[in-house]
Design a protein around this nucleic acid. Sequence first.
DNA 1: CAGTATCCAGGTTGATACTG
DNA 2: CAGTATCAACCTGGATACTG
Lengths: 125, 125
Amino acid sequence: MSQRNTVVTDQVTDCPLPEVLRLIGDKWCIQILVELGAGPRRFTQLERAIEGVSRRMLTLNLRNLERNGLVTRTVHPDAPPSVEYAITPLAEDVREPLELLARWARGAIPALVAARQEYDARARG
Amino acid sequence: MSQRNTVVTDQVTDCPLPEVLRLIGDKWCIQILVELGAGPRRFTQLERAIEGVSRRMLTLNLRNLERNGLVTRTVHPDAPPSVEYAITPLAEDVREPLELLARWARGAIPALVAARQEYDARARG
DNA sequence: CAGTATCCAGGTTGATACTG
DNA sequence: CAGTATCAACCTGGATACTG
C-alpha cells in the first residue's frame, strides 16, 4: 500500500493497464467501490458489509481510493464522530468497464475450471 | 503465486471481480498477454520484451496463465530447446474488456493526478 | 464511532547459481 | 535455450490494543 505514484510518471508505453490494476487492485478496493456504488456509507457500515476486511485494511484502502479521487470522505462534526464515504463521478465511470470484465469472467469460469483440472491432472501425472 | 483456486469455489456473491483481478493481477500477466497478443513468442523473447521481469517471475506468471487456460506452451523438440507461448481464444476474449478499462484509464489520468496533488498537498499542510 | 499504532506471520519478488 | 532451486529482502495483511 506504500506510495505507488506510477500511474503517469513512468508509463512510457501506451498501455496503462498495469497501472490501473494497481490502482484498483488493492485487496478490498473493488468491494468497497461496489458497496459504495449502492450509496454512501459510513466506516462501520463498510466494515460490516465487506466480510473479512480488517479495520486497518479498510482504512488504508479507503485512503488510497480517496487519494486517487475515486472516493470522497466527509466528516460530519458530530459526537460520536460520523464519517461518510461515497464514490466520485470518476469512479462511476469505471463501473462500466469493470462490469464488462465481470461479465467476461462469468462466461469464462467453466473454461477456466476445465483448464485447471486438465493442467493439474497432467502436473500430477 | 501459490495456489489460488478461488475463482469459483468460494464465490458466493455475484461479483467475480476480485477473483478476476487475482487471475490477471499477477505483476506481469497483463504485459505478457499484451506481448503475446502481437503473436507467439519464445521464452527469451518475452524476457527481453518485458522490461524488468525476472526469469523466475516470468516462469511463474506463464505457468499460472497456462494453468488458467489463457496461454499455451508448446515445446519443440529441438536442440537447443525451443518453447513457444501463445494466447488462447479465451484470452483473446478478455482483450476487449481490458481495452475498455485501458481507455478509461487514459481518460482518467488527468483527474487522478489532480486528485493526488490535492490530497498530498492537504496531507502535508 | 472512526480511526491510529504496533507487532508479527506469511506471501511475493528479485538475484543468483545451477541444469538438461 | 529454457528453465529450476535456493536464499534473502521486502511488502502485505491481520490481530490487537489504544485514542479523540
